[in-house]
Design a protein around this nucleic acid. Structure first.
Length: 570
RNA sequence: GCCCUCGUAGCUCAGUUGGAUAGAGCACAGGAUUCCUAAUCCUGGGGUCACAGGUUCAAUUCCUGUCGGGGGCACCA
């Protein structure tokens, strides 16, 4: 809707300028709003208010000038009025609404191609493969997926990537913990390391993989597989390092597979997986550091190597190589992000937990130092989820071993309800997830409200079909018969779908689509309760069937856009 | 101590990027179905937009400060 009026207004402004009526050093942003009260028209613009100062004219006079310069050959605008301090209120003709509905019947549902094929890499979840995903990861997964879907729908070429942190201390810890569990699986008395991962999932995993693991270790050291508890214990003592490595790799691989499975239960799919270890082995990290070195951004101090990130807006310099010679996590991240850019992406989006926000400045600094435009890197923070049960906080963490896994929640409340719950909130707002409440309310989750609207429409169409009625398309439907207030409101809501998606994509905020869908469903339910779709008047029925079809199109498109199911019956 | 972020109805949250009388769901009270799905709809009460200044014709929105919640300030990952 906005897009259509924008063209006309922009033209009017250009003509005013050419005719000398307005100076217009630059074309002002065209800000529209949908008036709360329909007596102020269908859409209002504040352009004239914004121009008052630079033009040194009264806003109302400017508004009049603009209106006088509008050229509207298709008669899309039925009426304009200048109101209040200088609003221009537009009322549209049935022609206009017809075009909006016709837009919805196109492949892209009238959504503009903002992305123009620009390549975007969205990196999200990227949880260490040291345990199952927990509820907090779910939020990042759903947000990253939602943003990806939004960008894909608006013309971007999107790649979803998972960065596997399979190097470094956490993996060493996993290796030691899983080796201990392996020993236990063979009947040995063995405690897991003090700061290891105590979770039950490792016990299950290593018990199940007991023989596989032992066979792999034996193969690596080219020794026969030991038999009997004491022989196994002696064998593992002798080849402790290899055993730990094999256990760690085995556990990481299987845990990652489980993570992938957990994500797909939430309808989240990745396109690519990148391994930190592989990047390091391929020399990607070293190359990036060499570049920084030769550009003069690295220096030695206190026996460590530092990156002069303060030159690029960070608040302090950062260590990239510790005095013991080990590279820091940050060094790996520099290499990874450089590698992402080298793959030809126009834009990198990272989705991080809010506890990493202090990290943004240094990664951005490293990219700038490597010559990349800072605009191309953007981090979306997702606030941590505070898990409660009956109002009491649930302590969680791999360290404590207590877990509420994402999978448990999805199994209990369902994928759609879980997705909707996360997508209803802006990513940067804090979120309490009450387990008891989530289960209790899963049956009244608003997602069903939206899906029910779609199912209802399908039901109407089943009825229409058995009555031998056909649904006209928007071009030929007698839309002038849709005069009821509920019908008008519904049409207007349908007309702003493409605008809503465009804004949501531009802001990377999927929750806007979710709110829109809830609003659309509400308007449809209202219409449905007040008017009968199929009535004796064939023309009126045709118009209402068309309206229902348009609503169905948008509901289906919108539900898919946020990754939700589109049921035909409920 | 410094930095980031949030503070809107009893609760959970939106608020069209600075515009007209601040909205929705839940909860609470009452009502609607001879007919396309009642997982629906209608009516009602509820607010100093944390607080105080500032910018502006116009501030919930931008700036500064105060208070409060959360997070971050490692040769950790």
């Amino acid at each position: 809707m906005r897009q259509r009026l924008e063209g006309l207004l922009r033209q009017a402004l250009t003509r005013s300028k050419e005719g000398g009526a307005l100076k217009l050093e630059s074309l002002p942003p065209l800000i529209f709003e949908i008036p709360r009260d329909s007596k102020f028209g269908d859409l209002a613009s504040t352009v004239a208010l914004g121009l008052a100062k630079s033009e040194r004219m009264k806003p109302r006079d400017i508004a009049q000038l603009i209106i006088d310069h509008i050229d509207d050959p298709d008669e899309l605008i039925a009426d304009t009025e200048i109101a209040g301090p200088g609003y221009i209120n537009f009322r549209f003709s049935s022609n206009f609404w017809r075009r909006c509905l016709m837009d919805l019947e196109t492949d892209a549902c009238g959504i503009a191609d903002q992305g123009q094929g620009r390549k975007v890499l969205v990196e999200f979840v990227s949880a260490n493969p040291t345990g199952p995903l927990h509820v907090g990861h779910g939020r990042g997964a759903v947000l990253g997926d939602g943003v990806s879907r939004l960008l894909a729908a608006t013309g971007y070429s999107v790649t979803r990537e998972y960065y596997i942190n399979d190097a470094g201390k956490q993996i060493d810890t996993l290796a030691a913990s899983s080796l201990a569990r392996l020993r236990q699986a063979f009947g040995e008395e063995c405690d897991i390391p003090e700061d290891g991962y105590p979770g039950e999932y490792l016990v299950e995993l290593m018990t199940e993989q007991r023989d596989t693991a032992l066979a792999q270790i034996a193969a690596e050291v080219k020794a026969p597989v030991p038999e009997g508890a004491s022989a196994v214990a002696a064998f593992l003592d002798e080849h402790g390092d290899v055993a730990a490595r094999v256990c760690g790799e085995l556990a990481a691989t299987l845990l990652l597979a489980r993570i992938v499975d957990d994500m797909s239960a939430l309808a989240v799919q990745m396109d690519t997986f990148v391994s930190e270890r592989e990047l390091r082995d391929k020399g990607v990290v070293g190359k990036a550091l060499d570049e920084l070195q030769s550009a003069g951004f690295l220096y030695e101090e206190d026996g460590a190597r530092w990156f002069r990130s303060t030159d690029f807006g960070d608040e302090k310099d950062r260590v990239i190589e510790r005095s013991d010679g080990a590279l820091t996590y940050f060094a790996a991240d520099i290499g990874y992000h450089r590698e992402k850019l080298s793959r030809g992406f126009d834009e990198l989006i990272d989705i991080w937990g809010a506890d990493h926000h202090g990290y943004i400045a240094r990664v951005a600094a490293s990219l700038r130092a490597l010559g990349a435009d800072a605009e191309r890197f953007r981090v979306l923070l997702v606030q941590l989820v505070r898990l409660t049960r009956g109002g009491e906080p649930v302590r969680m963490g791999k360290r404590s071993g207590e877990f509420v896994t994402l999978r448990e929640v999805v199994d209990e409340v369902g994928a759609d309800a879980t997705r909707f719950f996360f997508l209803m909130r802006k990513g940067d707002s804090q979120l309490d997830f009450d387990l008891d409440l989530a289960v209790k309310q899963s049956s009244e989750n608003p997602v069903f409200y939206v899906q029910y609207a779609h199912a209802r429409i399908c039901s109407i169409f089943r009825q229409a079909e058995s009555d031998g009625l056909t649904i006209p398309d928007a071009e030929s439907a007698p839309l002038h018969r849709l005069e009821a207030a509920t019908e008008q409101e519904l049409i207007k809501t349908l007309a702003i779908y493409a605008d809503t998606v465009a804004e949501a994509a531009a802001e990377r905020e999927p929750h806007r689509v979710v709110f829109y869908l809830t609003d659309l469903a509400a308007r449809f339910h209202r219409f449905y309760n007040q008017e009968r779709v199929m009535v004796d008047d064939a023309e009126l029925s045709a118009a209402r069937l068309c309206l229902a079809r348009s609503t169905q199109i948008v509901l289906r498109h919108g539900l898919k856009l946020v990754g939700l199911g589109v049921p035909e019956t409920m």
